[in-house]
Simulated scan of single mutants.
Amino acid sequence: MSAPLLDIRRIYCEPAAAALPRGQAILARFPAVERIEVASHWRIPELREAEPEEYLRPKREVLVLGVKKGLAFRPNGRSADFIAPSTSNGCAMACAYCYVARRKGHANPITVFANIEQILAATARHAAQQGPKREPNQVDPDAWVYDLGENGDLSVDALISDNVRDLVALFRSLPHAKGSFATKGVTPALLDYDPQGRTRIRMSLMPPGMAKLLDVRTAPIAERIAFIPELHRAGYELHLNFSPVVLHEGWEAEWTALFAELDAVLPAAVKQQLAAEIIMLTHNEALHEVNLAWHPRAEDLLWRPDIQEEKRSEAGGVNLRYRTGWKGRWLSRFQALLAQHMPYCRVRYAF
């Protein structure tokens, strides 16, 4: 029997978070665990000094409670129109390619922000300021779409608090806006949130063999696919997130098989509204070094200097992307396979 995704044994908590109603509710869910007061959810030496080989333990056993201080909204134009202030940071999952900043320490366990009322109010104000969407774009033809889970997976967050339920309820009430988040989880509680079409879930998928190696501590691909019709019946808009596309010998056959499975499982009602985003792998030199300590087999697929080239990030880090020219041809080939096997699936964004 596999270990549970969460087995919280220690909570690092800012006093301000513990004083808020949401913080108190979270602490009440874990009454017997060790609590350690911290001045800042970003600065926790015990997490930064963890052994690299102990990458998974803190993701399973540690929870951090904090207060979200910056409530800025960033324009996006890819997966969403705007990136909303996050209600969490970090993740209990351990995808080997994850780009989320590891500012709390190399494992970056979940931080839940307790000032949910402030985040909700800021989001409602921002959406009201936009008014109706004047022109359709590739994000959505009618609504302003807000990405809610840039720094984690809200399906996991829903196991910890009612923050996700509150977000879904907010967008149910906003006439010109939708919420959106990508997930690799299967959380039945989401089915009771009554989104009424105002929250878009982007189910992240890749071939099962690849996911078994790279999507560590996530729901199996077959379970994610089976959950899609349930989410749609519960009132969510469902899109697919083919990300990352990791190139290796035999990738075309693997993705073709995945498309065939989706075509067989998805009901007509899902297919009629289906869209997808396609994102080719970008890897990172610092993450490569972390992975070598705890999951070196993943790097056989992710770190491919023979078909990748370096590109400096805005922060100065060394990223590896598939080589210019080749990447475009491979992306075109991927889109052609998708169109052949799932012609009803509109590609909303590809990079």
Rank of each mutant, 00 (worst) to 15 (best):
P220C: 13
A169R: 13
Y322C: 03
G317S: 15
N284D: 09
F334Q: 10
A92Q: 14
G77I: 01
E254W: 08
T282D: 15
P207H: 07
Q272R: 15
Y193R: 00
E135D: 07
Q138H: 15
Q118C: 07
Y193I: 00
P31M: 12
S86G: 09
S180C: 14
A25R: 11
H232E: 05
E254F: 11
C98Y: 09
R217N: 09
Y236G: 05
V139A: 04
A128T: 08
P267H: 13
C345M: 12
A276M: 08
L266R: 09
L71I: 06
A298N: 12
E254N: 11
R165I: 00
L190N: 05
T183W: 00
A127Y: 04
P52S: 05
I225C: 00
P132H: 13
D81T: 03
L63P: 06
M203K: 04
A257K: 14
L56W: 13
H232M: 06
A84D: 01
M93Q: 11
R9E: 02
S86E: 03
S332F: 09
L27P: 01
L258Y: 08
N89G: 08
R10F: 02
A189L: 06
L27S: 12
E53W: 15
G152S: 09
S88C: 14
G316W: 03
Q138M: 03
P296H: 05
L27Q: 05
L240D: 08
I201T: 12
D153C: 05
L287P: 02
P305V: 07
A80C: 13
Y12D: 08
D157I: 01
F334E: 02
L65D: 02
Y344K: 13
P229H: 09
Q196K: 13
V186C: 02
L63E: 06
S88R: 09
L148I: 00
E37Y: 13
I116W: 04
P58I: 01
A268Y: 14
V168F: 08
A122S: 04
P21I: 03
A121P: 12
A269N: 08
I221H: 05
